[in-house]
């Protein structure tokens, strides 16, 4: 039986009816049409479905939508301010941190969580923060560089 839940996603409040066996990934993609959240494995191995849930980056494929009832969620669609990219997004664009782009939303959200807690992350801290987000294209180097540059730009 479907249940009514309330999610605050990217500062908008949504009330939706979901069956208990719907994941948060499904609710975001299918009910809210927020398709930037990707599913790469469905079991928490790849991080493509990363969203920020009540301040922490998590695999949305391993969360029931009903479990997220009442939560505040940031998806990739909520990172930019309208047409103005977030400094992290700017850095990803400028410094070649994107190839196929399938891991990019998750990477950006994990990185965003990091630099909100740690304004001067070291390379190792960045790599640790991104270690749950797999990327098969870039070898990570330009992603790590972009996060570092963004963290510096944000202090200016």
């Amino acid at each position: 039986m479907k249940q009514i839940i309330t999610l605050t996603v990217n500062k908008e409040i949504y009330e939706i009816a979901v069956a208990p066996n719907r994941t948060l990934t499904q609710a975001l993609r299918e009910d809210l049409n927020l398709l930037g959240t990707k599913e790469g494995c469905g079991i928490g191995d790849c991080g493509a479905c990363t969203v920020i849930l009540d301040g922490r980056p998590v695999n949305s494929c391993l969360i029931l939508a009903v479990q997220a009832n009442g939560s505040e969620i940031t998806t990739i669609e909520g990172v930019a301010n309208g047409r103005d990219l977030h400094p992290l997004q700017e850095a990803f664009v400028e410094h070649g941190a994107i190839q196929c782009g399938f891991c990019t939303p998750g990477m950006v959200l994990s990185a965003k969580s990091l630099i909100e807690k740690n304004q001067n992350p070291t390379e190792l801290e960045i790599r640790e923060a991104l270690s749950g987000n797999l990327c098969r294209c870039t070898g990570y180097q330009k992603i790590v560089e972009a996060v570092k540059i963004a963290s510096e730009n944000m202090k200016k």
């Binding site: 991080g47 922490r56 980056p57 998590v58 994990s110 923060a129 270690s131 749950g132």
Partner: peptide, 9 residues
């Protein structure tokens, strides 16, 4: 344990 994303759940 796992990864930061797993540790957060």
């Amino acid at each position: 344990l796992g990864s930061p994303l797993v540790r957060n759940r």
